[in-house]
């Protein structure tokens, strides 16, 4: 299977603080990767480097075989590598529909085309279909500032997928969401992304979510990846248990797969 993302010897220092060290990973098409680790372990820094928000101090990042180091986030986005945010980055004063309309407008137009009217019937239909895929069509005309957190998260991810990316990195898609709603939210996200044929990586603190949705886990600790293994293996890895998930956590697959 083709590598979608390849990272070699990635380094990042903020002065004397090491935020990434010796990171070597690959992502295959169709895989679902879960990134775990305590706060400050370097997860978001990694996502920021891959998506062009932060320049790495060293190493290589290749997306679909081509280097993305030194590119702006907008150029990385155009190549088909998109991201969502822990705190949803949406246009708060505008309705969901207008948020998506702008997202589609920017994705579908360039050059002089940007001067053409943003609102066309065809584009509105695409926006509505997209909202339906993420099951937020009921909130179509509600301002983003008035949305429940879960819906705003879905909008953030929906906006990140207007270009039909090859790979999407989700930064804590379930943070701020109640325990009861987490699985439902992830079901919606993963089903939509499956329909869009997008490879997924996401940062997550909830191990039940990781176990249910992830094929492979990367465990970050102090800027390094201490484990890169299939989920079931990672959950029983000694280092992962010691530094990330805690010894008291009982993996679902050992208990008969509570959520499997």
């Amino acid at each position: 299977m083709a590598h979608v993302l390849e990272v070699y010897d990635l380094e990042k220092n903020f002065g004397g603080v090491v935020a990434a060290h010796n990171i070597n990973v690959t992502v295959d098409e169709g895989e679902t990767i879960g990134i775990i680790g305590a706060n400050g372990a370097g997860k978001t820094t990694f996502v920021n480097m891959v998506t062009g928000y932060l320049p790495p101090s060293g190493g290589r990042i290749e997306f679909l075989g081509k280097s993305v180091v030194g590119l702006h986030p907008r150029d990385v986005t155009k190549r088909g590598l998109c991201r969502s945010f822990q705190v949803p980055q949406v246009f708060l004063s505008e309705s969901i529909f207008d948020n998506m309309l702008v997202a589609y407008g920017i994705a579908e137009r360039s050059g002089l085309g940007l001067f053409t009217p943003i609102h066309t019937d065809e584009r509105a239909a695409r926006v509505d279909a997209h909202l339906k895929r993420y099951q937020i069509e009921d909130y179509r005309d509600v301002a983003a500032s008035a949305l429940p957190q879960g819906v705003r998260k879905l909008l953030d991810i929906a906006m990140a997928t207007v270009r039909n990316p090859k790979l999407i990195m989700l930064d804590e898609p379930t943070s701020g969401i109640s325990v009861e709603e987490k699985f439902g939210l992830m079901d919606i996200i993963m089903e939509a992304l499956r329909q869009e044929d997008t490879t997924v990586m996401f940062i997550e603190h909830d191990m039940e979510i990781v176990e249910r949705f992830v094929d492979r886990v990367w465990a970050f600790y102090q800027g390094e990846i201490i484990c890169d293994a299939p989920t079931a293996e990672a959950m029983v890895d000694e280092k992962v248990r010691e530094f990330v998930i805690g010894q008291e956590y009982h993996p679902a697959h050992l208990e008969g797969g509570a959520h499997a």
């Binding site: 998506t51 702006h72 986030p73 907008r74 986005t77 155009k78 998109c82 991201r83 945010f85 980055q89 949406v90 246009f91 708060l92 702008v102 997202a103 920017i106 994705a107 906006m159 990140a160 207007v162 270009r163």
Partner: peptide, 9 residues
Amino acid sequence: NEIRVEYLG
């Protein structure tokens, strides 16, 4: 939101 504009491309 300038960050979102950048990440929309």
